[in-house]
Structures are given as structure tokens and as C-alpha cells.
Amino acid sequence: MFSVKNKTANMSIAIPLLEKKARQLRATCVQMAHDGKEGHLSSALSCMDLLVGLYYHWLRIDPKNPKDHKRDRFIFSKGHACTALYAVMADRDFFPKKWLYRYAQNDSPLPNHPCKHSLPLLECSSGSLGHGLGIGTGMVYGLRLDGVDARTVVLMSDGECNEGSVWEAAMFAAANKFENLLAIVDYNGVQAVGRSDQLMGYTSLEEKFKAFGWNALTINGNNLNEIIAALDTFPFEKGRPSAIIAKTTAGSGVRFMEDQVLWHYRVPSDEDLKLALEELKEVAIHLEEV
């Protein structure tokens, strides 16, 4: 079902279902943020379609054998958006859905920045931006020496690309011709207290990655057709790492949250939750289960 070999069949059957899945998981994020009283919702919603494309279509991972040496490595470098990661992992049965009730609670396996000590399933902890791509390059180097044909994917935020370490890693990846490395930038345009375009001097992320020796393409990162088409083209070029610049809308899927710096931090009130769920026309996956 999750094979990447039969691309056409996979795509034509899956997309409307995947879109429904993405709405369900967005509802899950809003519920978790509301119950856990932790924000970062707009960052979670913006990357949800990317996560759905990865986890339901592209990543070679097996919840029954999550540490299989041949698995694709997925690094969720924008750790602050972890409600999205937890929701999709629970839905793919990497852990029980009822754990989502414990998001951001004391002693939870799901803290408000992912911690590998709490959730050993993770490839690494995240929360401090600019680490994921560098760690990913180390993994690719090690996997290549071991002759393991696994792919490594790093999901970053556009604000994260302010960090110089991202570009140190980008240079290293190109110098070592890491064809098995995919960086995805969730380009939602909104940072903690500003707009990423303004802070990056209105320069192109795609051009930057290309200048660093990558092959890169820009897509609508809230469109599952485009996401899956891009993923299926990987690797974009022989001998180069690939980057997807996924233009997304912060808070995507919930209109009153969309493209608002406010919703980077704000915790949804009871009223916000009600309105969001009405618009998504779905309920959280962990509530359904009870």
C-alpha cells in the first residue's frame, strides 16, 4: 500500500482520501493545542499536507518495525510544530492514539518539543532550529558507508533557514553528492515575530539551494497532488541532494488562523476550537477512538 513503485495507482486512489486525512489530522492538532494549552498551531497546520504525503505515500517506514535498519530516516527539524508530527505518527499506529491526550502534559511521551528520551521512536529530538539538516547529512554519510539504500528526509521551517548552520549543512551535502538526501522547507512565510521574506531580504530559497549545489523545486505545499508529484520525482538529479521549497499557508485549513503571526503562539480558546472544527468538518482522531 505504501510502496513507491506503483506511483500512478497509489496517487489516483489516494488523493481524496489523503485530503480527508489531512483535515482530520488538522482537527487533531487544534484539539491537542487547545487541550495541552500549547501554541505553534499555525506552524503545525502549514506542514500537515507535507506530512501526509510523506507518511501515507512516500516514506518507507513500518510501524511494526520502526527501527528497521533499511527504513527511510525522517527528521522533523521544526520541532515546535510537533502536534502535526504526533498526530500523523499516532494515526499511522506508531503509538496509541490515546497518547495524544497527554500532549504537553507532565511526564508525557509527547512534550511540546519532540524529545527522543520521551519518544525513542524519533530519529532525534528537535526544538532548536538548524540542527536537523546537519544531523541528516551525518546519517546519509554513515548509511552510504554501510551500503544501506535508505533515503533521509529533513523537514525544516523557512524561519529555520535563517540559521547559518543550515547552509553549512547544505554545502556539505552538495560537496558529498548526497543523492539520497531530501530537504523540505515548509515555506509558510511567518516566523515567531515577523515575516520570513522580509527577514531573508526577499531572496529566493529555491535559488539559494541551487546556488549551494542542490537541485530544488518550488511547489504548493498545501496541495497533495503537487506534493506527491514532487516526492515521486526524487531524486531530482543524479549526484545532487534535492530540496522541495513547499509554499504553504501558515495555519492552513482554518481560515481565521491563516497567515497570522498571532497564531504562531496563540492557544485556541474553546470558541476558537469550536469554529476550527466546524470549518474542518472533522474531529480529532483520538476523540473518535473513545
Partner: peptide, 10 residues
Amino acid sequence: CAAAGLALEG
């Protein structure tokens, strides 16, 4: 960071 990735791969 690359050292960390390598260590994670054993």
C-alpha cells in the same frame, strides 16, 4: 551535527 548523525547510525 554531522558527527551526531553518524553516531545515530552506529
